[in-house]
Amino acid sequence: MAQADALTAARRRPIEDRPLAWLAPLFLLLGALFLYPLFDVTRLSFTDATDAAAPAHYTFASYRSLLGSSEFLAMTRVTGIFVAASIAGQLVFGLLIAALVCEGERRRLPGAALVRAVVLVGWVLPGVVIGIIWKLLLDESGAGIMAYAASLLGARNPIFLSAPVPALFWVTIANVWRGTAFSMIMQYAGMKTVPIELYEAATVDGAGPLQRFRYVTLPSLRGILLINLVLITIATLNTFDMVLPLTGGGPGRATEVVALYIYHLVFSDFQFGRGAAVAVVLMAIGLVLSACYAHILQRERAA
């Protein structure tokens, strides 16, 4: 009886008490401009669609042809190196700078906050501007500053972006420069939550600064490091705007990471089906990583 009353009460809930009424604009917008496109790109990936008006046929050919394509394999290799080296660099430098800033604040050294702000400025720059800045730094003519620095070290006519291996190296360096700030601020926030008593106890036990970092800081940061790892992996996989002004994916296709590859397939070659197939693979990786992220987040909250 009481249950039935509760049910009618729920049904009679005034419209202003229903969450959906308030969330409707957001859900409509996301449905039309995000969810439905995701569905549509998946559908397109199973077709042979091009920019031609001719109706497309459903087929698995896009996925099959990718696996046999040497371009796709080369792109996978380039993206793999770029992502692995970028996240390693961003994690290590982020952690190092965060530790430097935290230790400076602990010792009340002036300048710690300034260093934090300087690192963050690079992070708010638009990606295209970062690409242009590094392109200007890496100018291979005598007027370029990095070329000059290299010549002081004895390297005449250094090559930065005009040969495949150095180009991938420098694109990765530029990406580490861009992304380190994000890792730094996450690790910094994490370090601030480590109870100060732990450090005091470790000091009493005779631990030096390096041992305190190894046995107190690092174990406490495990959860944050995992979340950080997932987020920067996704961000690096999606890198697009920074590479365009820097190398445009070249020389040849030496720095054509996955996002550029999709763009070229779709908007230069007009192979909508194949481009969609790669986009779906990228989306699937993103979804798996998001699930990991959600999982870690919930575990951390429970802990």
Partner: peptide, 9 residues
């Protein structure tokens, strides 16, 4: 977490 490039097409 999903690149706008996926929905761009």
């Amino acid at each position: 977490l999903i690149s706008p490039l996926v929905t761009a097409l």
